[in-house]
Nucleic acid binder design. Sequence first.
DNA 1: AATATACTTGACTAAAATAGTCGGGTATAT
DNA 2: ATATACCCGACTATTTTAGTCAAGTATATT
Lengths: 141, 141
Amino acid sequence: MKLSNKGRYAVMALADLAKFESNKPISLRDISLRQGISLLYLEQIFLKLKKNKIVVSARGINGGYSLNKEANEIKISDVLNAVDEKVKTIGCSKDSKKGCNGKLAKCITHNLWDELELHINDFFNKKNLGDLIKGKNENTI
Amino acid sequence: MKLSNKGRYAVMALADLAKFESNKPISLRDISLRQGISLLYLEQIFLKLKKNKIVVSARGINGGYSLNKEANEIKISDVLNAVDEKVKTIGCSKDSKKGCNGKLAKCITHNLWDELELHINDFFNKKNLGDLIKGKNENTI
DNA sequence: AATATACTTGACTAAAATAGTCGGGTATAT
DNA sequence: ATATACCCGACTATTTTAGTCAAGTATATT
Ligand code: FES
Ligand code: FES
């Protein structure tokens, strides 16, 4: 039960973007160097962030990415959804009437996992990128 | 970001155990048939549950497993810990001073994942096996 | 005593998910 | 022109998870 890097990297990179924001876009190269994330991997991640309107891109020699909204209008859940890191706790298909393991009814633990999923999504809905960079002078990178 | 089957199976099997509890132990074969979980996989899981004192075993022809405590004294977190399904949200080692990706300080997202971990563990601490079997007559298996 | 049942244990393999890379693009400021 | 930096799909390697196998041991029943 481990969180994946892709979601973590996406949030890290966007936090970096929010922190160093100016009137000029920021290149992935800069983020890669600052955050220690592979540039090629970042490209893959930002493609999705762009498709989902979290960031906007500028091509060419002084190009890069900028946030598409204010940092505190971008929820962590938006970011995770954009990179396909949705939380999935249950073993059965959510809409189908069938249970997990091919059973006909929902299993006895179904509600538990369902509640957990709500609990986690709730957390991600309440947090936004702005929350992360509030204490800019903290001992963080 | 998917929950693994091992933890889910462990909780399912124990809920089954709690539900069909009597003065006699219950064999894994029965649980396997009822819950549609591979018998061999269940054996592996129950070994860990036994080592962690969640269940007690009885060998021989009428053998099987029984809960070691009352169902409502067994927290979901106990079960997940027993089968090594601890939640791990952060990318850095929790005790070391170093951050993730080999950085010297904690990264900007560190607190977020740390809070999330607390949030999830909190959920698992509040729920117990007894909660799951309260509505025994529900439309669940 | 023989037998069938069911737990015990460690190692092993298969499958799936994740992490990360590669190659060959296109747009644009200088 | 040229260097920079985004764009995009496909590919491979790595790691984790899921599940199996083989060879036991203990015990109730006949
Ligand atoms: S988790 Fe939904 S039926 Fe088992
Ligand atoms: S998650 Fe702890 S330092 Fe990045």
